[in-house]
Design a protein around this nucleic acid. Structure first.
Ligand SMILES: NC(=O)c1ccc[n+]([C@@H]2O[C@H](COP(=O)([O-])OP(=O)(O)OC[C@H]3O[C@@H](n4cnc5c(N)ncnc54)[C@H](O)[C@@H]3O)[C@@H](O)[C@H]2O)c1
Ligand SMILES: NC(=O)c1ccc[n+]([C@@H]2O[C@H](COP(=O)([O-])OP(=O)(O)OC[C@H]3O[C@@H](n4cnc5c(N)ncnc54)[C@H](O)[C@@H]3O)[C@@H](O)[C@H]2O)c1
Lengths: 207, 207
DNA sequence: ATAAAGTTGTGAATAAATTAACAAATGATA
DNA sequence: TATCATTTGTTAATTTATTCACAACTTTAT
């Protein structure tokens, strides 16, 4: 199915919102879900239409059906095996966070160069030496890497990951990394986010 | 000046890229800058046009001029005072990160409820009790808050921040918070990012 | 039964963002 | 000095995303 990235991101939020939230009813209206997530009812309806969910004209959307269909749409059969690369402060915080959030994302390995961490479990994940990355990515079928190494290491480590056959990278370093078209890259940059906030509050504009 | 959020985010990246990078020349072409950040030369040229930067048809854009004009455009006169709310693992990692990245963002306070942290410097920032948030936001002219409290606390703390007159919030909790139109909210959600990556690598699609 | 109230589903309209296209400018070269 | 190769600046075209607008439906109330 061909779905825009904006829709995928919202579907993920619908599921998480409705999964966590103990909603008082079995159904929810588009405008209620929209309200909960600062979206418009039209966005909600269109997204759900795109995945083929049909609601009831008088009760709204069945929450269980919605969650199941979002899962069927965005999750992969067996879930994704994820590695945290760079098990420092941020790596550990992220690991704990992903773990807590019951998803189809399985953190199966961490990589570091710190001998104090290698061979041990850090934040409950086995930590390997980054030199073994190729073998382990292959052996454990790791498809997604979370990149939380120091900036100076980012390019080298990313190159290694790409060579090892990784399919997606979530890059937390502020270093820009270059990926071939078959690797899906997503960047999270706090400075950019804060500077964007800074600009718009200076201008006195709302989003 | 009325600029799209997408442009602001890219301007922030241009500046950071060219500030960190010791470029071999005083000038850079749109296609070189685009290459460094996985953008198109047209995007770069349009963004720079929007802020009124004019390049040289044969040498490209003057890097110093570019950085200065981006700064003039997106920074506020005195910079922004920022508070970290919830000085746990993530809060400390973020603090260290922002600190390292020479910007006009001044982290002037942290807030927590842990008595072991209050009154002390944590990650080199004075930590106050969250109960004092209103007074301190006012007294220190804090305009941006980074929200890194546990999920259960997010709504209450955000409400408090908004009441205290905060102008922008960068929300790291996975809890959705509702803000009035005069507060600029930006959310960072790792699960959503990873699920988006998961979908697109499953589909075998590139971004 | 029938009407009333309120929501979905979805084309069509609009807005936002990106990409294409190319004239005008600039400096290098002959 | 004239030609050439290359890049900028910008208007127009296209693509992507959101919002509008409303017919069709579903339940409740009369
Ligand atoms: N994008 C953001 O918003 C954001 C926020 C905070 C931090 N960061 C960045 O994330 C990264 C990690 O931050 P942190 O605070 O956790 O730093 P940290 O120093 O605590 O952690 C880095 C870890 O990477 C390990 N490491 C070093 N070289 C490595 C290599 N070649 N291969 C594998 N592991 C290696 C270190 O041993 C350490 O455990 C940094 O690049 C930092 O700038 C980004
Ligand atoms: N969005 C993401 O991608 C992402 C990633 C990792 C963590 N998180 C979230 O960020 C938050 C912090 O994560 P963490 O790993 O640092 O957790 P943590 O438990 O280490 O830190 C939370 C801190 O908040 C403090 N706190 C508790 N109640 C408070 C209150 N009412 N006011 C002020 N401070 C209070 C605690 O004392 C602690 O210091 C959590 O909500 C977590 O789910 C988000």
């Amino acid at each position: 199915m061909r779905l825009p990235a904006t829709t995928i991101a919202r579907l993920s939020k619908y599921r998480r919102m409705l999964g966590s939230f103990n909603y008082e009813s079995t159904h929810i209206f588009s405008h209620n879900l929209a309200k909960l997530l600062n979206l418009t009812p039209e966005q909600v309806r269109r997204d759900l239409m795109l995945i083929g969910l049909t609601g009831n004209h008088r009760k709204g959307y069945n929450i269980k059906e919605l969650i199941d269909l979002v899962s069927k749409t965005i999750d992969s059969e067996k879930g994704h095996n994820v590695a945290i690369v760079g098990m420092g402060n941020l790596g550990m915080a992220v690991t704990a966070f992903i773990r807590r959030a019951k998803t189809r994302l399985n953190i199966v390995a961490a990589f570091d160069i710190d001998s104090g961490k290698i061979g041990k479990k850090v934040a409950d994940v086995t930590c390997y030496h980054v030199d073994d990355i190729s073998d382990i990515v292959r052996d454990l079928s790791i498809s997604i890497a979370v990149l939380t190494v120091p900036p100076g290491e980012a390019i080298d480590v990313a190159t290694l990951l790409i060579k090892s056959g990784i399919k997606g990278i979530l890059n937390f370093t502020s270093v820009h990394i270059d990926v071939p078209p078959h690797v899906y890259l997503k960047e999270t940059n706090i400075i950019t986010s804060l500077e964007e906030i800074g600009f718009f509050i200076k201008e006195g504009s709302s989003k």
